[in-house]
Design a protein around this nucleic acid. Structure first.
Lengths: 217, 217, 217, 217
DNA sequence: AATGAATGAGCGTTCATTCAT
DNA sequence: GATGAATGAACGCTCATTCAT
């Protein structure tokens, strides 16, 4: 079900981890171009057809390279998929991250993040098919994605609690609840139909959270 | 991501719709038993291996019938899966429904429903694999499941609003938010690990909702 | 390099081991026919093209069955090959065995066996390709074939020594020497060219052995 | 099955034919070194994995050169293999040749040759895999190797017959018999297990031959 | 000469579905 | 209705060979 909220901290992945971390490192510029083309084609192929219906030949056809070239960069169909899941996971995080900064308080930050996420999902509908299917194809990545995302949200909430912005007992349950809300709202209002403004949705949720998580007393 | 909340209304499926509605109508008692055996076997097979890794022969082996007998009851692999998704969808609903009754107010009802859902998911972990995979295998059923579930929640909220229990503007966004929370909390605390009491989780969420959805003024 | 000499003793394989022992047991007569057709076709395919150049589709085409039927009886290309090696090994043994009986003495028995072997190889030239290639494809069967064959020869020689027909120190080295001679003579005078009568060759060898292995003193 | 006996005559290959005769003539010293590296790597690769399981990239990796460089020296995978078979054939011959000289008589010469061959095979176990597989990969070389070897043995025997050392009718059959013995004894006592001294084995065979081929009358 | 990325034909294997018994 | 053998399309993957740099 994709993730939702971004991060404020620069992760390791952001530093060393670029596209190349996915496949076998190309040594030439031409190789780098080919790898990128294959990854993009894989996102399109799997996003459109899903993992099992998608095919390697479909990927290479889209990428405009020979079938065999695929195996220059990836060991298997599973391997591209894994690379892709992590790539998309990083993309969501990186796209949402800016929204989290510069908000006056944490509720506003979460509101901005949700709006950003819904906006992102509208131009990258394939993330749902890809990250969701990871549950079956690459459970490791699936878990990693959601565990990491929930953890980021929990940390943000706890920092906000320390600042007195939200109730002091916020924790993992709240984080998962927020993540679940975001993911499903993204599914409903980005993938299924774009029949409401992201900002309006985010505002509704923000109101819910503002009161629901208001500091005690 | 499975559903969450049940329904108060008796559905058609409960009345006329039995297991047989899924496959071809068996005419004999023996046939009915075989059909049930195949459906149960399919739940086990797909729950364990997923749709694509699961096989018809795996199903018939579990069911203790000949491979060919499968086609006496279902037209295709997709057909069992479809039947299964609807079956599971009904099971969740029916299991959660009782919890919704007899609660003093709607927030308490939602709390009881979440606790019941988490409990159900702990003994039926396969619902996640099956309903989630429907996104790829049988989008129709997937949509139907979530659209129906969200709709049920929305109606409950609106009825509660009419009674003055929650704010008057509750609607689809709130319903999807609640469904998303429930689904993800079920994933986290039923499928991933059972490291918290369903009641405790439900209580935390109820507190969030009680304040978050409190009537205006 | 194929084997050479037969056996006097009835082996376990002769009792329980029929063709079926090779693949998955067919339960119907039709299935039995199909399995036999596949094994024969495999012998032809591999005998003509070798293991690596031979293909499953080549086998099923020769057998007149669908490609998929192959996998009803064998798990893999390696599996048929293994079955085939053991089948051929048994065939050689069974073909040569009768010649060993009714000879006045052991030297005469070996002579008859060699003649029978060369004769057999002339109508089953594929045994060379198949058993030889087992060295690479299925070393286990390869070893088993030659170890068993050498052992049979050694036992015969020792029995003959006990009867005073040959020198008393005959053993493994003599057995391997005889097996090697037979195999290479079969290669030369059956597979490469049939330019000498099996009996003439066998007689030459018998003379060599008669004197070479004559009892001491 | 490899060869066995060496030769007394210096072959053409020994004169003009160096390593280069195998691949395309390198013009520089550096090229000569690269060619030698590739040939050695090929012997290791094919000896270890066999022709079909062995790969060009495995060879170039072992040789420490780029994949493409292979084709600077050989036209194809078959071509290296062919070069290798002839190289190994020559090596066996050259290694055994000295043993044939200085023996008091032909039986002693054959005995020394067999001992030398077994010793050689113990340090070059790959010759079996390589020469045997030539039966499938390069039948031409395979035939050439054994035909030449048998011919050398036959000539030696006939020369010995002329000297009255062995019976007068020795010929091709005897040559193939001896070659077969030697090859199989090498397989058994060099490749399979080194559980007997080469000299002991050679002595047993020499006794067999001494009597078996003793001059008439 | 050397490098290593690119190519694509080819084959083993799976399995949903059909059909003869 | 039940059985299980038969079918064949489809796809992942390998690797010898070519080619641009």
């Amino acid at each position: 079900m994709v993730s939702a909220r971004g991060t404020q901290a620069t992760s390791q992945a952001e530093q060393g981890g670029d596209v190349a971390s996915a496949g076998k490192e190309p040594r030439t510029a031409r190789g780098r171009r080919t790898l990128r083309a294959i990854l993009d084609a894989a996102a399109a192929e799997f996003g459109e057809k899903g993992f099992h219906e998608g095919s390697i030949s479909g990927i290479t056809r889209r990428a405009g390279v020979a079938l065999g070239s695929f195996y220059t960069y990836f060991d298997s169909k599973d391997a591209v998929f894994r690379a892709l899941v992590r790539d998309m996971s990083d993309q969501v995080r990186d796209h949402v991250a800016p929204a989290l900064k510069g908000a006056p308080d944490q509720i506003a930050a979460e509101q901005a993040a949700l709006a950003a996420f819904i906006g992102f999902a509208r131009t990258h509908k394939e993330i749902y098919r890809i990250i969701d299917e990871a549950e079956f194809v690459d459970p490791e990545s699936f878990r990693l994605h959601y565990a990491t995302t929930a953890d980021r949200i929990a940390r943000r909430l706890q920092a906000a609690a320390a600042r007195g912005e939200v109730r002091s007992d916020v924790g993992e349950v709240h984080a998962w609840a927020i993540m679940g809300m975001n993911v499903f709202l993204g599914l409903r209002y980005s993938v299924w139909a774009e029949d409401a403004a992201p900002e309006a949705i985010a505002e509704t949720v923000a109101t819910l959270l503002a009161k629901g998580l208001a500091p005690e007393g």
